[in-house]
Computed example of a mutant assay.
Amino acid sequence: MADARTSGKPVKLDPMTPFERKVVHDTVASAGLRSESEGEEPQRRVVVLPA
Rank of each mutant, 00 (worst) to 15 (best):
P15A: 14
V46M: 12
K12D: 12
M16Q: 07
S37V: 00
E20G: 03
R5Y: 05
G32M: 05
A51Y: 03
P15L: 13
A51T: 08
V24Y: 04
G8Y: 02
V28T: 07
E41H: 12
A29G: 12
D26I: 08
E41L: 09
V24H: 01
E36Y: 12
M1E: 12
S30C: 10
V11C: 04
V24G: 02
R45D: 06
R5K: 10
P15Q: 03
D26P: 05
R44V: 03
S37E: 04
R5P: 00
D26E: 11
M16R: 07
A31G: 04
L33R: 04
R21M: 14
S37P: 00
D3F: 03
A2E: 15
K12M: 13
R34K: 15
M16I: 11
P10L: 06
K22H: 08
P18T: 01
V28F: 00
S37I: 00
R44F: 03
K9T: 12
V11W: 02
Q43R: 13
V24W: 02
V23F: 08
L33G: 00
D3E: 15
K12P: 02
M1T: 05
E36S: 13
G32L: 08
A31K: 14
E36F: 12
M1W: 09
K9Y: 12
V11L: 05
D26K: 11
R5I: 00
E41R: 12
P42F: 04
G39Q: 03
A2T: 06
P15F: 13
R21A: 15
T6F: 13
T17K: 07
V47C: 00
R21I: 11
S7N: 10
D3S: 10
V23G: 14
A2N: 12
S37T: 02
V47K: 01
M16H: 08
E20T: 09
D14A: 14
K12Q: 11
Q43I: 09
K22D: 06
P42K: 10
K22E: 08
K12N: 05
R21Y: 04
G32F: 10
R44Y: 04
V48Y: 08
E38R: 13
K12E: 15
A29M: 05
V28K: 02
E40N: 11
A31W: 11
G8W: 03
Q43D: 14
E40A: 07
V46A: 13
T27E: 15
M1Y: 09
V24E: 03
F19T: 13
P50S: 09
S7C: 08
E36P: 00
V24S: 01
K9Q: 15
T6R: 15
E38Q: 14
A4M: 08
D14T: 14
V48K: 10
V28H: 00
M16E: 05
S7G: 15
T17L: 07
L33W: 05
G8R: 08
E36G: 10
A51H: 05
P18I: 06
P15T: 10
T17I: 08
L49S: 08
M1I: 03
A51C: 04
R34G: 02
D26S: 14
A4Q: 09
H25P: 05
D26N: 13
P18S: 00
V11Q: 01
G32W: 04
V11E: 00
F19Y: 15
V46S: 09
G8L: 01
A29E: 06
P42G: 06
A51M: 05
E38V: 04
A31P: 01
L13I: 01
